[in-house]
């Protein structure tokens, strides 16, 4: 087996202690994914595993064996940015930028969750499809902290992309 990372097959590490985060950064030099708290509290290390947003700091690389991982490098580039990357720039969705890759990976998955009808704690009617409102986005993005306090810009950027997708 192997881990498919942004389309490239990579062997799982021999040492089972290696986290997916450390594999990405230290061995593959995919440094877009950031080390924040390293204990599951901040969301800076968010990546997508088989399309679902997860914390790479609390995922052992061995657990990702046989699965497909997408990091911020796999979502977009300077030449061809992801719509969320462009919207974060347009709406000042960051200041220092350290939490941004995790925010954007989380937001990309979150918009797909809303489109698939996945509810959140603030969804009033659990049997009806949720809409990408400001309150929904704030609740659904609560696993990604921004110490600079750019949360309002982050929500604006995500709302903009949600509106574009709905149009």
């Amino acid at each position: 087996m192997a881990i498919r990372i942004n389309g490239q097959e990579v062997a799982a590490p021999q040492d089972a202690r290696v986290s997916l985060l450390d594999l990405l950064r230290e061995q593959l030099h995919l440094t877009g994914t950031k080390v924040g708290c390293n204990q599951g509290a901040c969301g800076a290390c968010t990546v997508l595993v088989d399309g679902a947003r997860v914390l790479s700091c609390l995922t052992l690389a061995a657990q990702a064996d046989g699965r497909s991982v997408t990091t911020i490098e796999g979502l977009g580039s300077a030449e061809a940015p992801h719509p969320l990357q462009s919207a974060f720039i347009a709406h000042d969705g960051f200041q220092c930028g350290y939490c941004t890759p995790g925010q954007i990976c989380a937001a990309a998955a979150m918009l797909r969750e809303i489109a698939a009808g996945v509810p959140s704690y603030v969804t009033a009617d659990l049997t009806a499809p949720a809409l990408p409102t400001r309150d929904e986005i704030r609740e659904r993005m609560s696993g990604n902290l921004c110490r600079c306090g750019a949360h309002n810009g982050i929500v604006d950027a995500i709302l903009r992309v949600a509106e574009e997708q709905a149009a």
């Binding site: 969301g43 968010t46 679902a52 947003r53 997860v54 989380a106 998955a109 509810p119 704690y121 659990l126």
Partner: peptide, 16 residues
């Protein structure tokens, strides 16, 4: 039960 699970942790943690 759905609401209780959604009240816990973050979306990333609930996916794991």
């Amino acid at each position: 039960l759905a609401r209780a699970i959604l009240a816990g942790a973050s979306a990333q943690v609930r996916n794991m």
